[in-house]
Amino acid sequence: MAARSKSEKVLAFRSPHIQTAERKKEPAKSRQTLHPAARRRRFIWLGIMLFMLSWAVGQLVIQQFRIWDKEEVLAQKKQELAAVKQQTEQLKREVRQLNDTNYLLELAHKLGYIKPGEQNYQEHHE
Rank of each mutant, 00 (worst) to 15 (best):
K29G: 06
E22D: 14
V61D: 04
N99W: 09
H17C: 03
R41L: 08
K6D: 11
K6L: 11
L60T: 11
L91T: 14
L11V: 10
W68T: 09
T33Y: 08
D69H: 06
Y113M: 10
N120M: 11
A75K: 11
R4F: 05
K25W: 02
A38D: 12
E123L: 10
Q122C: 04
E71K: 09
R93F: 06
L46N: 04
E80D: 11
I67N: 02
A83W: 01
G47E: 08
E118N: 12
K85V: 09
R66S: 01
V57A: 00
L74Q: 08
A56T: 11
Q63G: 00
K115V: 09
R96L: 08
F51K: 06
K6W: 07
K78Y: 00
R41A: 02
I48V: 10
L98M: 14
K92W: 05
Q19G: 10
A21T: 07
Q59P: 02
M1W: 01
N120P: 05
S5T: 15
F65V: 02
K78M: 01
V84S: 04
K110F: 02
Q86R: 14
L60K: 15
R31H: 01
Y121Q: 13
K6E: 14
R14G: 09
E123R: 13
R40I: 03
A2F: 04
P27T: 10
T88E: 10
E80L: 03
E8C: 13
A37R: 06
I48T: 07
I62Y: 07
R14I: 13
R93K: 15
G117A: 05
Q63V: 06
I114L: 05
Q76H: 05
K24Y: 03
I44Q: 10
A82P: 13
E94L: 15
H124V: 14
D100F: 11
Q86D: 12
R23E: 09
L50F: 08
E94K: 15
R31C: 03
Y103F: 12
Q64T: 06
L107S: 08
Q32M: 04
L50T: 08
H35C: 04
L81R: 13
V61L: 01
A21G: 09
M52D: 10
F51M: 00
P36A: 00
A38Q: 06
Q76I: 04
M52W: 10
D69A: 03
H125F: 05
M1L: 06
E123S: 13
A12L: 08
S54Y: 00
Q86A: 10
K115R: 14
V73G: 01
H125V: 12
A21W: 06
V61W: 08
Q119V: 15
E22W: 07
Q122A: 08
N99S: 15
I18G: 13
G58R: 04
R23M: 02
S30G: 03
A83C: 04
A3S: 06
L107T: 12
G47A: 03
R93I: 05
P27H: 00
G47M: 02
A3E: 08
R66N: 05
E26I: 04
K115H: 09
A37S: 11
E118R: 06
P16K: 14
E126M: 10
S15K: 13
H35L: 06
K24F: 01
A56M: 10
K78V: 02
Q90G: 14
E26D: 07
K29N: 03
Q97L: 15
E123T: 12
L104M: 12
T101H: 14
E94S: 15
S30K: 06
N99L: 11
G112D: 04
L34G: 00
Q79R: 12
Q97D: 13
E80F: 06
